[in-house]
Design a binder for these strands. Structure first.
Ligand SMILES: [Mn+2]
Ligand SMILES: [Mn+2]
Ligand SMILES: [Zn+2]
Ligand SMILES: [Zn+2]
Lengths: 136, 136
DNA sequence: CCCTTATTGCAAATGCTTCCCAATAACAAT
DNA sequence: ATTGTTATTGGGAAGCATTTGCAATAAGGG
């Protein structure tokens, strides 16, 4: 488990949460993180989970995603930015990057006269597995 | 106010809500819709607002948007689809369409083997007005 | 080893949305 | 027009994700 500096105190809870998010290879939500954390530290509280998600997001270590459900999901923030395509049947997420987003940004900045700081592309569809299952 | 067929009963409340959404030229939220509706029908309930938003969305008459706040916004569903750029300072929304989304869809379908049914692009930034205010 | 204060656990509060249920009203069939 | 069926309503309670208040704890600089 990493010992690193974050600009804030590195508590056992914070280290644990960051560790779980790091080793999770999917997009985890607050409740899933809470449940996994409780297995290793039964006294950890849900407030602590939310507070640390907020802090780790502000610090830039993790990214918060809205994947179409009523709650957020989180993942380690890796460069370059990527986007998400979610299967509406099974929830499996396909991640992608696209050079079209840069072109789109330029065109929209030109048209709007805004300074754009963030772009988020969310797609929904049906994954191959679900397509095959429903065609049988 | 329109008399039209929706596949469901056209109640006075439903007609009123649809009418307000139609004449609103911005992205309205449930609470704003409720407040405007109460001015014309003080007995209308918030449940009715939510139920009708859900129904009008299912029927395809309105579109639900997530613009980065903790609640949804709604607008009349006009073709072609468009996307949103929100000023993080004042909330003003710039709407745009882009042919890059079609190209991106094709590329991502190819890479993922998904069948994509929906694309949503959300951008954040600073509008011209806010930029000018902060540079003074 | 202290001292300061960021952080925690717990519980209560919040904001948005959905659900329940008895009363009402749409509208299709008579 | 009158009726019967049942979708829809109002009101309130419940649900879910998230935030907040507060007293107790602990990180980590000096
Ligand atoms: Mn989830
Ligand atoms: Mn709003
Ligand atoms: Zn699937
Ligand atoms: Zn602005």
């Amino acid at each position: 488990m990493a010992t690193e500096t974050i600009g804030q105190r590195m508590t056992a809870q914070r280290r644990l949460l960051l560790d779980i998010i790091r080793s999770a290879n999917d997009h985890i939500d607050a409740d899933g993180l809470y449940r996994q954390a409780k297995e290793r530290d039964p006294r950890i509280s849900l407030s602590t989970v939310y507070r640390n998600l907020s802090l780790l997001k502000d610090v830039g270590l993790i990214a918060e995603r809205r994947l179409g459900e009523g709650h957020h999901h989180y993942e380690i923030n890796v460069a370059p930015h990527h986007h998400h395509l979610v299967c509406v049947e099974c929830g499996v997420v396909f991640e992608f990057e696209s050079h079209f987003t840069e072109k789109m940004k330029a065109a929209v900045e030109e048209a709007s006269q805004y300074v754009i700081t963030n772009i988020e592309v969310n797609m929904q569809g049906h994954c191959r597995d679900c397509l095959e299952k429903s065609s049988q």
